[in-house]
């Protein structure tokens, strides 16, 4: 009989292989970009994406998303709205499951607790239940208050970035997880966490209170895996790179997709692995970001 504890370390190509067309994927903060780029490289289709910001916009630009569960799709760099999100939503190319932060938490928590819904007050009186018919206004049976019943939001897979994990899936963030990460992990069927560094099991045991996700189903070695985003404890955000995307996406939203397609080809589809991507970005750029 095998008595050895099973390790959970996979490379990003194997781990992204768990994803299939049509799945619901929740994406944590900072964005696990090594995994996001693999999703784009594989050309996955019809995904329901639970996410906000740059990675959401990028996945829409790459044609991976059919439906978006989002509370915020801001663009950054002077764009009040993510350019690819805006264009796709206005043209009806994606379906938006309209929500907000509290409703999203309630839906993820309902999934985690196997409940048919959880109540939430924020959104009462707004248009959210009209534009999202999955949200039902109801009268609470105890005090007769008007509340919103939020159905479960159940990701097939949640993908995350963190500073550290051991080989058995014990994740320890530096500076804490993103605000929605743990809701996503509790709700999802499976959790993949890419990390800047794999640490020893002894190091985890020396301070188990630091363990934030316990355990993840897969750990992916991905130093600088959040690039062009920050990773707490490791590196800053690469604003020059984000501006490059932002400008390309803005041109695409105005009708000229060439720069955006070039971006996707060069940074997402062509590098076969995360290591190839880092070679493309270059050691000088990466070292210049190496502070936090």
């Amino acid at each position: 009989m095998n008595t050895e504890r099973r390790q959970r370390i996979f490379d990003e190509v194997e781990a992204a292989g768990w994803l299939q067309d049509g799945m619901t994927v929740a994406i944590g903060q900072p964005t696990p970009m090594a995994l996001v780029r693999q999703i784009i490289r594989r050309g996955l289709k019809d995904l329901t994406i639970v996410d906000a910001g740059f990675s959401l916009d990028l996945l829409i630009a790459a044609g991976c998303a059919r439906k978006v569960v989002s509370y915020y799709a801001g663009g950054g760099f002077g764009n009040p709205v993510g350019p690819s999100f805006r264009r796709a939503a206005e043209r009806g190319e994606i379906e938006v499951w309209e929500c907000e932060e509290g409703i999203l938490c309630a839906g993820l928590q309902a999934a985690a607790q196997s409940l048919p819904f959880l109540p939430w007050r924020g959104g009462v009186g707004t248009s959210l239940p009209e534009v999202n018919p999955d949200l039902k206004i109801f009268m609470d049976p105890l005090r007769g208050e008007t509340l919103i019943a939020v159905p479960p939001i159940k990701p097939d897979i949640a993908i995350m970035h963190a500073a550290h994990a051991d080989a058995y899936g014990n994740v320890q963030h530096v500076g804490g997880p993103g605000w929605i990460d743990l809701f996503m992990c509790r709700a999802a069927d499976r959790v993949i966490v890419q990390v800047d560094q794999v640490i020893s099991n002894e190091q985890v045991r020396s301070d188990p209170w630091k363990t934030t996700i316990a355990p993840a189903d897969a750990i992916v070695r991905a130093p600088y895996g959040a690039h062009p985003f920050y990773s707490r404890g490791y590196h800053l955000q690469d604003n020059e790179h984000l501006k490059l995307y932002s400008e390309a996406a803005n041109r695409a939203a105005a009708g000229d997709r060439k720069a955006l397609d070039d971006y996707l080809e060069r940074f997402c589809r062509k590098p076969a692995t995360h290591a190839d991507y880092l070679e493309l970005i270059g050691i000088k750029r990466l070292l210049a970001l190496y502070e936090y």
């Binding site: 906000a52 989002s70 509370y71 915020y72 799709a73 801001g74 663009g75 009040p80 709205v81 993510g82 999100f85 805006r86 939503a89 206005e90 043209r91 009806g92 309209e98 929500c99 907000e100 932060e101 509290g102 409703i103 939430w120 007050r121 924020g122 959104g123 009462v124 707004t126 248009s127 959210l128 534009v131």
Partner: peptide
């Protein structure tokens, strides 16, 4: 309104960024 502008929600003339946390914050 942070949702968008236009009579048809499925084909908004301007798609806004989304509600962020404002429904809950403004409630409480």
């Amino acid at each position: 309104n942070l949702i968008g502008v236009g009579p048809d929600y499925r084909r908004l003339k301007f798609r806004g960024p989304g509600s962020v946390g404002t429904p809950t914050l403004s409630t409480h």
